[in-house]
Simulated scan of single mutants.
Amino acid sequence: MKVFISADIEGCAAITSWDEVHKGRSGYAEFREQMTAEVVAACEGARAAGATDILVKDAHESACNLIVSRLPDYVRIVRGWSGHPYVMMFGVDRSFDAALFIGYHDAAGTDGNPLAHTMNDRIARLSINGELASEFTVNAYTAAMNAIPAVFLSGDVGICTSARRLVPAMTTVAVSEGFGRATVSMAPAKAVQMIRDGVEEALSGDFARCALPLPERFEVVLEFNNASDAYRSSFYPGVEHPKACTLRFVSNDYFEVLRAIRFITL
């Protein structure tokens, strides 16, 4: 069994402030440890379920967050940003059997996590085919484009709820919930254990239940916080600029959607 893991940090247990997720800030070292612990737990759960090849994509900010010396010896890791439109899913291809998402967070425009955002803090809202889209939404469709089921996600309550709306059969572990600028979180050690057990359970089941149908047509609407950012990105080929802060892109090819999102959100 070949497993792909995309790892973010804002949805890890107990994380509450931006100081805890930005390299060089006061809380980063502690929560870099927690991100690593949750990823290692996912790897251990995958191994227990029979995974023989595990590729981890460090997918937060610099993409050089995980403490690599703590990864099991059977794991490979992708660090840094290649520039490829797959972004947080770079390294995935049709040879993988399942995709896991660790430390994921709610979308821009929601209140389920004090750090909720989509791609970056310039985006106020991203929708795909009229539905609010998170980074998970974008990445789950990337997996689906490669015929890979999204079987497991850990993060805040909001992203777990929306992930199950998109993929009802997937296993989720909600480690925290946001209330304004506060969070209520389970103990980090408990989160690690639940992620390990949840991944093992998810990978021991029927992956086919988690297959996500790829729509035939994609309408992507990006709402920016600032009109000047929307104007600058409006010159991408095929982009419409219906309102001062809003861009629209339509395609039947999801790779073209990923390419547009990659360049529009730079």
Rank of each mutant, 00 (worst) to 15 (best):
Val184His: 11
Leu247Pro: 03
Ile195Leu: 05
Val220Ile: 10
Ser234Met: 04
Val157Phe: 13
Ala191Asn: 08
Cys160Asp: 07
Ala244Glu: 11
Cys160Trp: 07
Leu212Pro: 02
Asp156Ile: 03
Ala202Ile: 09
Thr172Arg: 07
Glu219Gln: 13
Thr171Phe: 09
Pro168Met: 02
Phe224Met: 05
Leu247Lys: 09
Ala208Cys: 08
Arg164Ser: 09
Ala208Tyr: 11
Glu201Lys: 15
Pro213Ser: 11
Thr183Phe: 00
Thr183Asn: 09
Ala202Pro: 03
Leu222Cys: 04
Ala244Ser: 10
Met194Cys: 10
Phe207Tyr: 15
Glu216Tyr: 07
Arg232Asp: 13
Leu214Cys: 03
Glu201Tyr: 15
Asp156Trp: 01
Lys190Leu: 14
Cys245Gln: 12
Gly178Phe: 00
Gly180Cys: 04
Ala187Gly: 08
Met186Tyr: 05
Val157Met: 07
Val157Gly: 05
Ala187Thr: 12
Ser162Phe: 03
Ala244Arg: 04
Pro237Asn: 13
Glu201Ile: 10
Cys210Gly: 03
Cys160Ile: 14
Arg248Ser: 13
Pro237Tyr: 14
Ile195Phe: 06
Asp197Ser: 14
Ala163His: 12
Glu219Lys: 15
Lys243Asn: 07
Ala211Glu: 15
Tyr231Ala: 10
Lys190Ala: 14
Thr183Val: 14
Phe179Glu: 11
Val239Lys: 00
Arg209Met: 11
Ala230Phe: 04
Lys190Asp: 15
His241Lys: 00
Gly178Met: 01
Asp197Pro: 07
Ala227Lys: 09
Ala208Glu: 15
Phe218Pro: 06
Leu214His: 05
Pro168Phe: 04
Ala244Gln: 11
Met194Val: 11
Asn225Asp: 10
Leu212Ile: 01
Ala202Gly: 11
Asp156Asn: 02
Pro168Asn: 10
Asn226Leu: 06
Arg232Ser: 13
Tyr231Pro: 00
Leu166Gly: 01
Leu222Thr: 09
Val220Ser: 08
Lys190Phe: 11
Leu212Ala: 00
Ala202Gln: 01
Thr171Ala: 10
His241Met: 01
Ala182Phe: 12
Arg165Cys: 14
Ser185Asp: 03
Asp229Trp: 09
Val167Glu: 02
Gly198Gln: 07
Glu177Val: 14
Pro168Leu: 00
Val167Gly: 03
Arg181Cys: 12
Val173Ser: 04
Val239Ala: 15
Gly238Pro: 00
Gln193Arg: 14
Asp229Gln: 02
Arg165Ala: 15
Leu203Phe: 11
Gln193Gly: 13
Arg181Lys: 15
Ala208Leu: 12
Arg232Ile: 12
Val157Pro: 02
Ala182Trp: 13
Pro188Asp: 05
